[in-house]
């Protein structure tokens, strides 16, 4: 596997890395997400109950995670309307409660639903509706059932729009540096754009996905974990690291032995965690295991910087990190 990758890199021109990320990761990624959300919507139409829907829900996550943190072009706004998090004001829960208590058109009409707060759409809504025991016991002829069907129909519409909208971004990446490409003026810019996303993803996972539940010294905050009601905290964190490295491997033109080793460390740390929802981190041992995972993700970030960024002389932004 490693050997094949090296040969491929040697055999292709400079843009290969960007093209490979586009062709082998992002393009199939958005297509898979479109399929998975369509399947989810169909499943909800067939049987909207929480238990019946969970496999399709998890499958939608499996499709979303590889592209979740690669926010380029249409995935930038989509990341907000598909997986808004963290929601520190509880806006999503409040909006959902309000919708369920009302008879608003948004309850059954996906187009009207697309106007509600981003925090109440997509995965955050399903995490509540399918994962909160106070809500998830709904029957097939209930307002909650209708809302679940609306949420999933909205997700399928978003998935389809993303697959469609992604074409333009894929073309822009593929033609980076060519005349008329206003998105990526050089090949190097396309590389940099993808590389920046890798770093942001790892940073977000370490600081926010894992950092928020870790809380303050002596005070873990398990319910501040990401979509913990439906068991997403550990799978999402691990998938984010896996996706980051997958993209780094496709992007770099050299083997990344250190990055791969660092990812293995992340996997080991993740495997040691007993409760994927992080709801046990009041327990010191569980907390320690989560902290170790966080450290391993940070270490992975440092190594990607050293192994992928440094050889290209990539440095943080000139304007974006220095406001005026």
């Amino acid at each position: 596997m490693r050997l094949a990758l090296v040969l491929a890199l040697l055999a292709t021109p400079a843009l290969a890395g960007v093209e490979e990320v586009t062709q082998q990761h992002l393009r199939p990624g958005v297509a898979a997400f479109a399929e998975a959300t369509e399947a989810l919507a169909q499943a909800a139409r067939a049987d909207c109950t929480a238990e019946a829907l969970r496999p399709a829900y998890d499958a939608a996550w499996t499709a979303w995670s590889p592209i979740a943190d690669l926010r380029l072009g249409p995935t930038e706004p989509a990341a907000l309307t598909i997986a808004y998090w963290p929601d520190q004001r509880g806006a999503g829960a409040k909006a959902l409660r309000g919708l369920l208590a009302s008879d608003a058109p948004a309850l059954r009409d996906p187009a009207a639903f697309a106007e509600v707060s981003a925090a109440a759409r997509g995965f955050p809504a399903l995490d509540r509706l399918l994962g909160d025991p106070e809500l998830s016991g709904y029957g097939t002829n209930s307002p909650t059932c209708t809302l679940v069907q609306t949420v999933t129909a909205d997700m399928a519409a978003q998935g389809a729009a993303l697959a469609e909208g992604w074409q333009a971004e894929a073309e822009a990446l593929a033609s980076a540096g060519e005349a008329g490409n206003a998105r990526y003026l050089t090949e190097d810019e396309a590389f940099r754009a993808l590389y920046t996303q890798i770093l942001s993803a790892l940073e977000f996972t370490a600081d926010t996905r894992l950092g928020r539940p870790l809380g303050e010294p002596g005070r873990p905050r398990p319910t501040r974990a990401e979509f913990w009601r439906t068991g997403r905290p550990l799978p999402n964190a691990l998938a984010s690291a896996e996706a980051a490295v997958a993209v780094a491997q496709l992007l770099a033109e050299i083997p990344l032995p250190l990055t791969e080793a660092a990812l293995d460390q992340v996997r080991h740390a993740a495997a040691a965690i007993d409760d994927p929802t992080f709801q046990n981190i009041e327990d010191p041992t569980a907390r320690l295991k989560l902290e170790i995972l966080q450290q391993r993700v940070r270490a992975l970030l440092d190594i990607v910087e050293a192994e992928v960024g440094a050889p290209r002389g990539l440095q943080p932004g000139f304007n974006s990190r220095d406001g005026d």
Binding site: A179, G180, N181, A182, R183, L185, T186, E189, R192, G317, F318, N319, S320, D324
Partner: peptide, 26 residues
């Protein structure tokens, strides 16, 4: 932009004008 790029935008359509090996200030 900070990557050295210069672009024109007319009717919402961006077109590249050039890219220099420098970082434009704000």
């Amino acid at each position: 932009d900070g990557l050295g790029g210069l672009l024109s935008v007319e009717d919402g359509i961006p077109a590249p004008l050039g890219r220099a090996e420098l970082a434009w200030d704000n």
